[in-house]
């Protein structure tokens, strides 16, 4: 099994990577710290799993060279699990990337990172409801202090691909997307 860490720039993917693998990758508080992917190993329920830290990207339509690296990484690893790291204080735009990855048929786990920042900003997120709609594990995390990591790792095995139609149905309409032609 392979796990890809994906998400917007500066949501804490490198901190995830360091925490999960014990490796030393640069963590900095500005977007664009990681411009090339990094590989490391972590253990999921006794099994050695390769973890890849992918440069931050806003969407799957690459806009610069670092984003190109990310999209290529995703395409080269069709059978991987994607841990999609979202900034919980800016959840909507993070969801855009998560949905794009889900639509492509990948197995996704959502980490709502920077949970502490969201709390500071008085943003409340119904994690269970979100999980129910998306149909994938959703785990709040605070990477800098390590909160939520145990749960995240323990739930990677639960994840399975979801059809976007399911999500639309669970959300109760909204986008009427599945077009028949």
């Amino acid at each position: 099994m392979k796990i890809l860490l994906m998400g917007h720039p500066n949501v804490g993917k490198s901190v995830f990577f360091n925490r999960l693998t014990g490796a030393k990758v640069f963590e900095s508080n500005y977007p664009g710290t990681t411009v090339d992917f990094m590989k490391g190993w972590m253990r999921v329920e006794g099994e050695d799993v390769e973890l890849i830290d992918v440069p931050g990207t806003f969407s799957l339509e690459p806009k610069d060279k670092a984003e190109e690296v990310s999209v290529n990484m995703l395409e080269e690893n069709r059978d991987c699990v994607v841990v999609c790291v979202l900034d919980a204080s800016k959840i909507e735009r993070g969801l855009y990337l998560a949905l794009e990855i889900i639509e492509k048929g990948y197995t996704v786990v959502v980490a709502l990172n920077m949970w502490d920042v969201a709390e500071d900003k008085n943003i409340k997120i119904g994690v269970e409801k979100l999980e129910q709609i998306l149909g994938v594990p959703v785990v709040p995390t605070t990477a800098v202090s390590g909160e939520g990591f145990k749960e995240l790792v323990s739930r990677i095995k639960e994840a399975a691909p979801v059809k976007i139609e399911e999500i639309i149905k669970n959300a109760g309409g909204g986008g009427s997307a599945a077009v028949s032609g």
Binding site: L95, L99, I123, K124, G126, G173, G174, G175, A177, G181
Partner: peptide
């Protein structure tokens, strides 16, 4: 039945419906 990926607008609409049900912005 052909599966078509969501358009950008459809995706944002979906996100909007999801976030209305799950996210609550408190006083800043």
């Amino acid at each position: 039945v052909v599966e078509v990926p969501l358009s950008v607008d459809e995706r944002w609409d979906l996100i909007d419906t999801i976030s209305k049900q799950t996210v609550e912005f408190g006083a800043y």
